[in-house]
Design a protein around this nucleic acid. Structure first.
Lengths: 211, 211
DNA sequence: ACAATATTTAAACGAATGTTTTAAATGTCC
DNA sequence: GGACATTTAAAACATTCGTTTAAATATTGT
């Protein structure tokens, strides 16, 4: 092996470039060049560009989703044992907080969070075919958990509002790496924990709003 | 000229395909083929693919933004004459409602709304260079209007929350045309006026939440 | 140490892309 | 009605793309 092994270096470079320029606008040549490896090694290790995208998703999303899923289940369990409804805020925090704090764990995870945020708005089937199956089970768990937390809210309304929340979250994930819209105010707090708390407060207010 | 003129047919086809497959994944050949015109006519009329994207944006966004801008200004004016603060809900309705009702005015406008919603999450510079200048003035107007409506809220907090609202709105604009995440509930109301009202309620609750 | 396997390298392939070119056709205006 | 600009048509341009090939090199197992 060279420095880190070739496979990881390709994943790192792909993650960075997919996040910055998008999947279809990033060539395998750009990836292998950025990674400092031979062009053919990307296809050798991953088979195809599509499979590389899937590998980029899976490397970080599987552990992240496991953590979020465990936190959700623990909240449900604790609420049941205490004989109370789970709190919307606790549930949304379990879903949002690990994702946004992920951003601070290095340049790789930061790019990855951008990539995911961007992928949530993606229409292209190549990307959605990779992405949707990876988050659908967790999304279902979140939805059913929120149903328990808000038993009086019609499920269709809850689903609509949860889509709004996903939109707010997705934008928060990729907006810091976008060229910003210029407004005549100093930019929002760089402290990402504060942004996460603000987002949690925002979506909880919206989810729990009167009907 | 043929049926509708060639220029419009190219714009219609580009709008449809950009929304469905994304800019970089749509070829000029696919556009001109869908439009039933010659390949070279796209470059003849618009000069380049980038310029075609800009034309697609401008054709509908300029009138739409004019309407939204006028509605915002009227609300500010009326509030000032009445000696009261403008209502957050009125301002957000003026910004959101014309956009979402635009979706029901035909297949072209529907695709366009998707394209805009998708573009709000875009990282690619080609697309953002076209898109950002077209919405920045309106966004600034919305922001300053909300500052007047919420004088007690620190501007940095307001900006953060407005980003959340933009994310929720962007997702609402393109989600109906995405392959949906499957949840065990009948999909949200097809009535788009109801969705718009739900969105307005959601973002107002979040914007006005206690700090 | 040697054979077997895994990985890297350099070169090339065919296909698809945005754009340009040339010629024919169509419309406009004096 | 003829000169002129505008629009279409078909072909070709040079690049870039994802992928594959085949030889060279490194690694591993025994």
């Amino acid at each position: 092996m060279s420095q880190p092994d070739t496979k990881s270096r390709i994943l790192d470079a792909a993650e960075q470039l997919f996040a910055r320029h998008g999947f279809h606008n990033t060539s395998i040549r750009a990836i292998t060049s950025e990674a400092g490896v031979n062009l053919a090694s990307a296809n050798y290790h991953f088979g195809s560009k599509d499979a590389l995208l899937l590998a980029v998703f899976e490397r970080r999303l599987l552990p992240l989703n496991r953590e979020r899923s465990e936190r959700l289940l623990k909240i449900l369990e604790q609420a049941e044992q205490a004989g109370v409804l789970p709190a919307v805020r606790d549930l949304m925090r379990a879903f949002i907080e690990p994702t946004l704090s992920f951003r601070n764990q290095g340049p790789g995870t930061r790019a990855f969070v951008s990539l995911i945020g961007r992928s949530m708005a993606e229409m292209d089937s190549t990307i959605r075919d990779c992405f949707i199956p990876l988050i659908e089970p967790l999304f279902k768990l979140l939805f059913s958990s929120l149903q328990r937390a808000l038993p009086a809210l019609p499920p269709a309304i809850l689903l609509t509002r949860l889509q709004f929340a996903m939109g707010a979250m997705g934008r928060t994930m990729c907006a810091p790496d976008q060229r910003p819209l210029q407004v005549d105010v100093e930019p929002s707090p760089a402290d990402s924990a504060a942004v996460a708390e603000a987002l949690i407060g925002f979506v909880c207010a919206g989810l729990e709003a009167p009907c």
